[in-house]
Nucleic acid binder design. Structure first.
Ligand SMILES: [Zn+2]
Ligand SMILES: [Zn+2]
Ligand SMILES: [Zn+2]
Ligand SMILES: [Zn+2]
Lengths: 167, 167
DNA sequence: GTTAGTGTGTTATGTTATAACATGTAATGA
DNA sequence: TCATTACATGTTATAACATAACACACTAAC
């Protein structure tokens, strides 16, 4: 039998939240991953991840630092940038270039090339998987180029905000 | 003698330069566009565009400022950022987010959603059109989101650099 | 118990971008 | 004619984002 599943969601990528994992799940996932990979999920790293997963929207490094400071950690810039780099390398955080912000991955624990859909008005950001976005990358052979990392960000206006616009 | 067709390059997007318009052409194109749209191609705007088209690679705002300073213009930051914004709005320049750099458009004068292919080793950057990239954006209706602007950047290693790598 | 690797902290600095205000010039139109 | 507007450029100061370099503690390995 054919699956219609995919298209059900794809018609409203930007509605609701496409939060594959929610708070508890996310913490469990990162714990498991760190154990499996023999990495240290230190209090600092855990805190930074919690800050990001909490309201699951992009935060600037300095916003994160402020929150860290309030919970007893150092709030000097290298602290945040180092931990963020680490979490990015291991796929639990992405950088949203267009906002100079950092966001918890919606579907971590596997390598992927996500698309970020960003409403310029309400500033909501959705992470959309390759399948759902309908976006297909060029095959490496064709482009004669080995893709290691992608930055794909679609900025515009979500239907909610568009309907609310007067112009 | 026939002219080489564009798709001859499409199997090697990243080789040679995918420079749809070269220096003279580019200047002519921007002149025509500005006249048609009744915009002022002032000496400053022209100079910034010339700087970018000259070696057609991404330059930082402060690199551009330095070059401006050497030719008698002001070299205070707002000068560059304002002109760059203007040229971006009118489609003659793109920002390469991954490099905090600005690059002259390879195929200006029409609206498009280009892909930038960036070699992390030689730092060459190619602007690839939607057709050539093989990359297809989700249709607006499907995503329930009106795309106004895209940032699509593929970072990795070009075949030339890969062949030269020891590892 | 020395060494190497890792994680966090600190100070200082580098890089990228914008806010706010000032001046000049040309077109518009009471 | 002379205000009004629009626009282009210039200046100063500062904001926002990011990294270099060094210090110190902890642990595991040798
Ligand atoms: Zn993700
Ligand atoms: Zn919105
Ligand atoms: Zn272009
Ligand atoms: Zn290369």
């Amino acid at each position: 039998m054919k699956k219609k599943k995919k298209n059900e969601n794809s018609s409203k990528i930007f509605l609701g939240h496409d939060h594959g994992v929610c708070f508890g799940d996310a913490i469990t996932q990162i714990e498991d991953y760190f154990i499996k990979k023999k990495l240290q999920l230190t209090p600092l790293r855990r805190k930074v991840f919690e800050i990001l997963i909490e309201d699951h929207k992009p935060l600037g490094a300095y916003e994160i630092l402020e929150k860290l400071g309030k919970t007893g950690f150092s709030s000097s810039p290298p602290i945040a940038y180092r931990v963020l780099d680490f979490l990015i390398v291991h796929g639990f955080v992405h950088k949203v270039q267009g906002l100079n912000g950092f966001i918890a991955c919606s579907n971590p624990n596997h390598s992927h090339f996500p698309t970020f859909v960003i409403c310029r008005k309400c500033e909501k950001v959705a992470e959309v998987s390759e399948e759902k976005s309908g976006l297909k990358l060029p095959s490496p052979e064709i482009s004669n180029f080995k893709i290691e990392k992608t930055t794909i960000e679609l900025t515009g206006i979500c239907s909610t905000c568009e309907n609310a616009e007067i112009r």
